[in-house]
Simulated scan of single mutants.
Amino acid sequence: MNEQPSVPRETLQQQAVAWHLRLTSAAADETVLAEFARWRRQGPEHEQAYRDVENLWQQLPQPLLADRQRRRELAAKRRRAAWARRGLGFAAAASVLLALMNGFYPDYLQHPLADYRTRIGEQTSITLADGSVAHLNTDTAMDVTISGNERRVLLLRGEAEFDVAHDTSKPFRVTAGGTTTEALGTRFVVRYDGQAGSVTLLQGKVRSSQPSAQGAHIDSVTLQPGQQISFSAEELGSVQTVELQNADAWRRGRLLMNFVPLKQVIAEINRYRRSQIRLLDDKLGEREVNIALDIREIDAWLAALQQTLPVKVVEAGPFVFLQSG
């Protein structure tokens, strides 16, 4: 008798989560239910994986469950209005696939034609045609144009450190949103999430500018080493002093954060993970912590967190939840 090869536990958990999404998406017809039943009967480990997901779902706070129910009802209403019954199976599958892609692989859907990209969790260094070096952090996309009289980088999203080759005849400018930073032979970091960002100067001098809200003039700020300025679509923020060893710790594979709320730490860590960490306790999220962790050892940090804080880590497939212990 041939035995079925065992399925890795992580794969089973991911399959169980995917099934739970399908079954609670208001798109589960008889065909989907039959497929699920066959998957569940494949072995006790399949049954247990799905029960783990169901148990975790029961632990979620009511506001999250209520929001999920509202989205299910809205999705069902839209599908009934837009699709005929015959096309429901295909549309439901496409909807689930898109939801999974957007949830776990958002970087694949954004800026696919950028000159340079990194996926979630990836980092790389690019030597540009002028000799400057761009170090790209996780989930970053940028376009580069080097002409006879200008060097221009368009940071579409993410974070990059620029080590600029000196050339007085060709200004080096990085644009993120409406903010442009011009380097004067220097090393600096620009971060941008699509709406807001920051510029941190590590060495040399830079000038960041953007049109004023009224468009009547250009707002401009010159930074010194160890200074950072945040920006939004509307304005440049005030200049802040930062710890240089923390500002580019990611270049060394580290995250260093001092006296910051746990929710801020989790938001930073999530930039490097496809499986996002969620806080189930607002009060816990406000607790100030210090961290020094290896980006490649986030799971080990989560395990250690339970030993240092009253925190319980609950895992279900690709999902990780933190709640008060």
Rank of each mutant, 00 (worst) to 15 (best):
A303F: 11
A99E: 03
R151M: 09
L64F: 12
G215V: 08
K77V: 11
A249K: 01
E30I: 11
G253E: 01
L12E: 00
G204V: 13
M101I: 04
H135M: 09
A66K: 09
D294S: 14
H20T: 01
A91N: 00
S169D: 06
G197S: 10
A94H: 04
I269M: 14
Q13N: 10
M1R: 15
V189S: 09
S212C: 07
Q203T: 04
A81I: 13
A176N: 02
T24D: 00
A114W: 06
S209L: 07
R187P: 03
S230K: 10
Q195M: 08
R117I: 12
R273L: 09
T168M: 12
N102E: 10
R273Q: 07
I269Y: 06
S147L: 10
V32Q: 01
L202K: 03
L279Q: 05
T175E: 05
V164L: 01
G197V: 12
V199G: 02
F162K: 07
V153G: 00
G89W: 07
D107E: 13
A160K: 03
P211S: 05
R251E: 00
I266R: 08
G131Q: 05
E315R: 15
Q110P: 01
R151P: 03
R152Q: 14
A303Y: 12
G317M: 05
R41P: 04
L184I: 06
V164Q: 01
W250A: 01
E30P: 08
I218K: 09
Y116L: 04
F90D: 01
E3S: 15
R70I: 11
A267S: 11
R86E: 05
P261R: 02
N246Q: 15
V314E: 05
L65C: 06
R38P: 03
T308F: 11
A247C: 03
L113D: 09
Q227S: 07
V289H: 08
E10D: 12
R173N: 04
S169P: 02
R191Q: 10
E182Q: 12
A316T: 03
G148F: 15
D248N: 14
R71S: 09
Q240I: 14
A213H: 14
Q307K: 15
R273T: 04
F104D: 02
V153H: 02
V242I: 12
A91F: 01
L293N: 05
L60A: 00
A196M: 08
P112S: 00
G43S: 04
Q59A: 10
E297W: 06
